[in-house]
Design a protein around this nucleic acid. Structure first.
Lengths: 301, 301
DNA sequence: CACGGTGCATAAGTGATCCTGATGCGCATG
DNA sequence: CATGCGCATCAGGATCACTTATGCACCGTG
């Protein structure tokens, strides 16, 4: 009757699967139970939430879908946060990273941590940018590293899904990849504003997704002709070297790539920024790494 | 067994009341049920949450308390958001304000709205700063107005309790209230940094709580000797006029108060800022007011 | 147009659950 | 040491939340 968490969970699952019976299988219920769950939710809220045949959210269902996943995530986060208190693993450290977040700054801090506590069981998992925070909130990872593009010393616009603290871990200049024989490849720097109408390659899984570039530059430009899925910068560089379009990457990374020339980008001033994400109360090896990285960026500044 | 919403609700109630039986009365349960709820939560999370006799949170309970109220609020927010779709009241508009947020800018926008839709049933409720957002999220108010102190054009640090949009409604300079015979009362402006060690009156319910001033100025100064509870600026002015201590208020308000001289404050540059808070999908009369205020601040800029 | 298949709704039954009322027990207080 | 207060525990009954079984609307097929 009451709007309960498991009702919300099946509601979300039904719309995820676009099917009652599919959601039932996924949740380990019978189809009948799922049907009753949705009916109970609809009765409780006094509105039809799901259109059946085909299964789709009604306007009210859409509204609820804007809340439910975040709610369930926070619920898991709360449970994880309590569990962490008692099941802390002082010899394990799991790090969730987006693709380009594992910079040398971070790697050096990790090495330093390993040096002080040699029997540390370290695991690094590279994930899509959006799920890194979820991993941290649900304690599947102790720390998160998210990279993105922002104005210098501006924070990244992370979705606010729960009580997390973020800390700048590194800032690197941006560079544009040109084929080595491209006329602009000789330049010491290029202005991004001059390149909004150029041919771009969109590589949303690497360090600089074009939609983010559009948002930060407040332009409608940077329209891609080629889309590149995957986190491998070498493949992206190969495309750029072949003249299929321009691509942007952090300068230190871009400079090492074969077949292309990395030209620093300015105007607008943008940086590739990496942020460390942790919960309000990091447990022991995580807290040490936070301190190490905080110290590094503080002295590097 | 599962970490359910009503279990969390009684958990919070128990620690609010510092009593099982008190919480039971408040929730309409028997004491026995409350006891079982807490036991079920503890069994589910595998940790003792509440210390009994006296009733107090354990470390794990404290951790859970950092999540539970926000979670329950978001649950109510989700329910309210769906309910709004069907029970929209196009002739009612309820506005939740913190004490000093009802500036002339807002008042004029309200007058304009009343002019265009004359049979509008308007209600304004003045509340503590922290609960304004809750009122908006749970649809007890259609719009919220929160005031506070910030650097010019910086947003106020609102607690992130749910999907809300904020919009600057007004910015006013700050002023310090001096007794008219005070030596600094003649000055055309004063530097707040020179006054950190002065005697202050803390009036946390008015426009400029001292703890906020400390936070923004990053100082340990502004220590109060007198505390003033209540939202009435005249009472505060009377205390300041009698020489009990200094107080800060927005200049337009401060200039009208008897017995004191309002001297504009600068260094650091701070403003009294009012922000309009609304949900992602404001309903009709609310949306109009948002547009009106957005238009006003846009043209005023 | 009959036919079966698919997929959600509904009905009936059952074991688990959640609450109440009664009682027990530890701990203060006088 | 008696008493009261307050939380824990127990037993029982109402309710709930599943399952299985069946119904029914819709769709594609021969």
């Amino acid at each position: 009757m009451r709007m309960d968490t498991h009702l919300l969970r099946t509601f979300v699952a039904v719309l995820d699967h676009r099917s009652f019976s599919g959601a039932a299988k996924a949740l380990g219920y019978t189809q009948s139970a799922v049907s009753q769950h949705v009916a109970a939710l609809e009765a409780d809220l006094g509105a039809r939430l799901v259109e059946r045949r085909p299964v789709a959210p009604t306007p009210a269902g859409t509204r609820l879908l804007e809340h439910a996943p975040a709610l369930l995530l926070r619920l898991d986060a709360a449970r994880a946060d309590v569990a962490r208190l008692h099941h802390a693993q002082p010899t394990r450290l799991t790090l969730a990273c987006s693709a380009a977040a594992l910079t040398s700054t971070v790697a050096r801090a990790l090495a330093q941590l390993r040096a002080t506590t040699p029997l540390l069981d370290l695991e690094v998992r590279v994930l899509a940018r959006e799920v890194v925070i979820e991993e941290v909130l649900t304690a599947r990872a102790d720390l998160g590293l998210v990279d993105g593009v922002a104005a210098p010393s501006d924070p990244l616009p992370l979705p606010d899904l729960g009580p997390t603290t973020t800390l700048a871990a590194a800032e690197q200049p941006l560079a544009v990849l040109f084929p080595t024989d491209h006329p602009l490849a000789r330049r010491r720097s290029v202005r991004l504003t001059d390149l909004t109408q150029a041919q771009w390659i969109d590589a949303p899984d690497t360090a600089v997704p074009l939609d983010r570039l559009r948002a930060v530059c407040r332009t409608e430009g940077f329209r891609p002709r080629v889309r590149h899925r995957g986190t491998d910068p070498h493949g992206l560089a190969a495309l750029a070297a072949a003249g299929l379009g321009l691509a942007a990457l952090p300068l230190p990374l871009a400079a090492t790539l074969p077949g292309v020339t990395a030209v620093p980008a300015d105007e607008p001033r943008l940086v590739h920024r990496t942020e460390l994400v942790h919960t309000a109360h990091p447990t022991e090896p995580a807290r040490q790494l936070v301190d190490l990285i905080a110290g590094r960026t503080a002295t590097a500044r």
